Simulated scan of single mutants.
Amino acid sequence: MSEAGSVNEIVKRLRQGLTRFGYSACLITNLPRPEHERWQQHILINEWPRQWYERYVNAGHYRNDPCALISRSTEVPFLWEEVAKRHLCKASRRVMEEAGDFGLRQGLCVPIGLGTGNPAVVTMAGEEIGLSPIARCTAHALARHAHSAARRLIARTSPRFAPLSPREREVLRWASLGKTAWEISNILSISESTVNTHYRNSRCKLDTTNVVHTVAEALRRGEIEL
């Protein structure tokens, strides 16, 4: 996977490692907040059955997906059956039940990147998957390696993001130090409205959803430093 020159090659090698454990589908995606309207743009590799993916999108399941919710708050891998044992709301339980209707009855989620401010997850599923310790450990290792390879490949082939302006970087540097919009406006001798405009422009350029996410992404991309 480290030497893969395309997403298809990463998928091929991942499948070679997972098929013997019963996995038939996988999805590798970053995890924006549930209200994010363009969450599909954060998918790195989509190997879900086409009909299930279309149903998932059309039904708005992302907002209620319990696996996505849990993966934004932990880096501990977990089985779908563990999720099913939780007290889920009706909409969340529907997501899990409908996945089974499309042949994805058992699955494993491997959350990644919680501490970076850019959480992601590798989800693998099938009709019946191997649950032995070695099967889970192997799937966990392959998932993390596939995510890393996909991120590197996409970073090399994607168009470069629009850079932040000097003032936008300055505002985010102060925000990274815990300053409020009002405090930043006083420090820089600009209006609070102007500070919020810089926040809004930065979110648009970095495709983020709030100030914390924007600061984390600016740090990750090297736009600002602590």
Rank of each mutant, 00 (worst) to 15 (best):
188 L>M: 13
66 P>L: 04
165 S>R: 07
140 H>K: 12
40 Q>G: 08
122 V>H: 03
203 R>Q: 05
208 T>R: 04
37 E>A: 11
87 H>T: 12
98 E>I: 00
92 S>F: 01
157 T>I: 15
79 L>I: 03
148 S>M: 12
121 V>A: 07
218 A>K: 00
18 L>Y: 03
62 Y>M: 01
103 G>P: 02
204 C>G: 11
157 T>R: 14
137 C>T: 15
55 R>Q: 14
132 S>R: 10
67 C>T: 15
28 I>N: 12
117 G>P: 01
111 P>S: 11
60 G>T: 02
52 W>L: 05
3 E>L: 15
2 S>T: 14
90 K>E: 05
79 L>H: 05
171 V>Q: 05
16 Q>M: 08
140 H>L: 12
224 I>G: 06
39 W>Y: 05
116 T>W: 11
51 Q>N: 15
12 K>L: 12
121 V>C: 07
127 E>S: 12
16 Q>N: 09
45 I>C: 00
60 G>E: 03
132 S>M: 05
15 R>G: 09
66 P>T: 02
108 L>E: 06
37 E>W: 13
161 F>P: 10
112 I>D: 02
141 A>K: 13
197 T>G: 11
85 K>H: 00
106 Q>Y: 07
78 F>I: 01
119 P>M: 04
212 V>M: 09
187 I>E: 14
123 T>V: 12
182 W>Q: 14
65 D>K: 03
118 N>G: 13
69 L>W: 09
40 Q>L: 08
37 E>G: 15
74 T>W: 00
10 I>H: 00
193 S>A: 10
151 R>H: 11
166 P>T: 10
10 I>K: 00
151 R>Y: 08
96 M>F: 02
